[in-house]
Amino acid sequence: MAEGEGPVSAVLAIPAFLGSFGGAIDFIFSQRESVQAGEPIGGLSQIWDLLATQMAVSILALVLATAIALPLGVWLGHRGVGEFAAVAIGNAGRAIPELALIALMVAFIGTGVLNVTIAVTILGIPPILTNAFVGMRQVDRGAVDAARGMGMTELEVIRRVELPLAVPTIMGGVRTASVNIIATSTIGSIAGVKTLGDLILGQATYGTEGVIAGAIVVALLALAFELILAAVQKTLTPRGLVLQRAAARVSA
């Protein structure tokens, strides 16, 4: 039966690629010999080394990017100045290829953890800056006017009114930055930092299963960051704001 061949081969194909994933998962959990020489590769301890490096670079970069971009964006947004710059930096951030940034870094500044961390931080800054600016500007002008009119100082207006109300937008920026940072720290491996990108870009050494294993762990790392940041956002978003948005949705 020639007709039966399609479905049958499709059914057979599923275990075939599941097999690759299976091999990749095996790669993660148990050590084996490298493709060319007899070096031991894979296994939890190597994965953990790569993961730890990438996490250290990523977390440091996210903290640095936030520390730089958040106060700046908040201040500009509070004052309502520099809109063009804030938005243009956000747009430019999207247009810069992470690969180009890392390659330029390698060509002109050098390799190593410090340089990669700086490059990764640079790519984390634009979304946080732009979103912080936009988030502050979006706060209901009536609430800000009332806050000032009741005698809040500028810092109190920021801290008690604008910042809490800008949380969802600001956290949106931090989440985008986190996506950029994990992606860029992955290819940090071409600048001499042994992150999970080392597996992904090292088929010659690690084989297909190692490549896929790297991709799986990077994807899980990115999802873990996303989940944590989503939880942080949920914790920081004031309940009244959630209710207000729900009410707006119902009346819309």
């Binding site: 209901d140 009536g142 006017d145 009332a146 806050a147 004031p238 009244g240 209710l243 207000q244």
Partner: peptide
């Protein structure tokens, strides 16, 4: 004020 300006988060 006309816009009331209650703080929605409080």
């Amino acid at each position: 004020i006309q816009q009331i300006g209650l703080f929605p988060h409080r």
